[in-house]
């Protein structure tokens, strides 16, 4: 099967800065794909190359098997939801949504009908006559979404679309976006720096750092089996274990990761475990309590269900975890 989007050894250099360095990606048609990474990691550059706003310094890009280099954005059947929404301020909502149909010379009645339908899809029916300036952030975001899907593109790109929304709105939009993607069947490529967002929405995630893809996989793979210290650290605050520490437990000198929830915390002396430490901080997070524990100079995070009896700060505790909870990392970076 042809990939929806395929990047082969794609680099983009700005002077001496390598925003993207020989990136390979294969995005499957119909999947919800997230590109996750801190700012400056190359994820947005990657999105811009797919949209056609920028051109690769080297490498090859294909969209549904067709070469995309040298093809301007207006000839790509790919649409984008911009981070700042980029709604046209001189047009009202319905004209914004119908913009691409107008360019395609769709008859006026027909394009208004399609635009209105797209607005219905994003639950903004009846807002057509308003100006973008009269809408809230969340509404603008929906208009941007409607404008991008009215054309039924082969690929929809979303550049941090939820970044400017408040937490509550963001959570409900996450669910809506996922449902929308399912019903449209369009390939979604989603750029975000929020690991929670990427893990909860995407079918697959690519983690970017320093212009390179660190790891590609399902959210579960990324979360449970990070291949590098960066991924372990960036995706969900794992404990990164130094080789000396790992050797003392497993007998191999390797970097490894350990999820906070895999650590059992017991009152000192109640277990045969030799690992005793002191609780440095204790943060109540609702369902869980997060502990920072000092273990002979090694700091470990543990999260304990708040329903259990949780020791207080300064108390001595004994730690225990299954040996197979320690995930050895292949990449020693």
């Amino acid at each position: 099967m042809t990939a929806a989007v395929s990047l082969q050894k794609v680099s983009r250099h700005f002077g001496l800065v390598k925003a993207m360095d020989e990136v390979d990606l294969e995005i499957v048609p119909g999947e919800f794909f997230a590109m996750l990474g801190p700012s400056g990691s190359g994820k947005t550059t990657c999105l811009r190359l797919i949209a056609g706003f920028d051109q690769p310094s080297s490498g090859h890009i294909e969209i549904f098997g067709e070469t995309a280099e040298g093809v301007p954005p207006y000839r790509r059947n790919v649409n984008t939801v911009f981070q700042d929404y980029a709604l046209f301020p001189h047009l009202n909502v319905i004209q914004n949504v119908a913009f691409s149909l107008m360019l395609k010379k769709v008859a006026k009645a027909e394009r208004l009908k399609q635009a209105a339908a797209a607005l219905e899809t994003v639950k903004l029916g009846g807002y057509g006559e308003r100006r973008p300036g009269q809408l809230s952030g969340g509404q603008r975001q929906r208009v941007a979404l409607a404008r991008a899907i009215v054309n039924r593109p082969k690929v929809l790109l979303l550049d941090e679309p939820l970044g400017a929304l408040d937490l509550k709105l963001r959570e409900s939009m996450q669910e809506e976006l996922k449902a929308l993607q399912k019903s449209l069947g369009i390939t979604f490529i989603f750029v975000t720096h929020d690991q929670g967002e990427a893990l909860s929405m995407a079918d697959r995630v690519a983690v970017f750092n320093d212009g390179k893809v660190q790891q590609i996989g399902t959210p579960e793979e990324i979360y449970k089996r990070p291949q590098s210290r960066f991924v372990a650290d960036f995706v969900g605050s794992s404990n990164v274990l130094a080789p000396d520490f790992v050797q003392s437990i497993l007998g191999v000198r390797r970097w490894a990761s350990l999820r906070p929830e895999a650590i059992h915390v017991m009152a000192a002396g109640t277990s045969a475990s030799r690992m005793t430490g002191t609780i440095v901080t204790r943060s109540y997070l609702g369902a869980v309590v997060r502990l920072l524990i000092d273990l002979n100079g090694t700091s470990l995070h543990a999260s304990v269900p708040s329903s259990e009896a949780v020791p207080g700060e300064g108390e001595k505790v004994t730690l225990g975890f299954a040996k197979d909870a320690i995930h050895l990392m292949e990449n020693e970076k």
Partner: peptide
């Protein structure tokens, strides 16, 4: 980004 949005939506 308005210019990019326009090109993205099919305007040369």
């Amino acid at each position: 980004s308005l210019v990019e949005a326009s090109m993205d939506l099919g305007a040369d």
